[in-house]
């Protein structure tokens, strides 16, 4: 089995008295597509903050390709190939879509060459995402759904080894959602990156990932084959108070 590209070991993040992420272990290997699900407030986004260096964990370790980056600044994670999107798009609103992607290429993506030369310029990335026609448009003028796509473009511009996708499909129609999932699989297949994908549309997510981890109240309660996880008693229990497993509401309550 190949070495984990990204590994969280017993990661804990506290906000005052609240334990948002509680001793979570999570791994993603080369070319692996991992789903991360859980009811609202389960700590998924907070875990992403820790995995990308945005929030330093209060306990636990973070390893990127075997290197311990615990406590490092976000740009160090980016330089080691961890790229992420934000649930609420954080594109540079005054810059064009193309400049947004170019920004990533100029910094995080500058030193690293990944296997796939097709993603070495901003226009190709935008074209791949179906944003080719919008490349000159100011990012702030794009619809929220397209800004989420642009977020993926920025992450790809960083030439990632690990891609963290936080609810990129929120607000998409089922057809668009399917296209988006295909896109993510292509990225994984063609670039061999490890992908961890958070999505509220659990059924679609489960049909595309090879493995799914479930967070509930900050703890990881399941991790494994999607079919097995869907039948897991603890997972069903966790979702019962919220919404059924497989509900596809585009709910977007922000986590922490």
């Amino acid at each position: 089995m190949p070495e984990a590209l990204l590994a969280a070991r017993a990661v804990t993040v506290r906000f005052g008295g609240l334990v948002a992420v509680d001793g979570v272990d999570l791994e993603a290997r080369h070319g692996e597509l991992v789903g991360l699900i859980g009811p609202n407030g389960a700590g998924k986004t907070t875990l992403f903050h820790a995995l990308s260096g945005v929030l330093a964990p209060d306990a636990g370790r973070l390893l990127v390709a075997g290197e311990d980056l615990t406590g490092s600044a976000p740009h160090v994670f980016a330089a080691h190939g961890v790229a992420r999107t934000f649930q609420m798009p954080r594109v540079f609103r005054d810059m064009s879509a193309e400049d947004n992607v170019r920004f990533a290429l100029q910094f995080a993506g500058r030193t690293r060459r990944h296997a796939h030369d097709a993603f070495d310029d901003a226009r190709t990335i935008l074209g791949f995402l179906g944003l080719g026609a919008a490349s000159a448009v100011a990012a702030g003028a794009l619809t929220p759904a397209r800004q989420r796509l642009l977020e993926i473009g920025m992450a790809l511009g960083a030439r990632p080894r690990v891609l963290l996708l936080d609810e990129i499909a929120a607000g998409l129609t089922p057809a668009e959602l399917e296209t988006c999932a295909q896109l993510i699989r292509r990225v994984r297949d063609e670039l061999g990156v490890a992908v961890i994908w958070i999505e509220h549309a659990v059924r679609v997510l489960m049909s595309h990932v090879e493995r799914v981890a479930v967070l509930h109240q900050g703890r990881k309660i399941a991790d494994g084959d999607p079919r097995a996880v869907a039948k897991d008693a603890a997972v069903i229990e966790a979702y019962l108070g919220e919404e059924g497993v497989g509900s596809e509401g585009g709910r977007e309550r922000r986590v922490a």
Binding site: V54, P74, H75, A78, R90, F103, F107, A108, G109, G157
Partner: peptide, 25 residues
């Protein structure tokens, strides 16, 4: 230059610029 681009990114969203690889400090 890249320095100027980094500064614009910092002005727009400093943390985002960091996650895209800029050593903002």
């Amino acid at each position: 230059s890249r320095l100027g681009l980094a500064l614009r990114g910092i002005g727009a969203d400093e943390e985002r610029a960091q996650t895209l690889g800029v050593d903002t400090r």
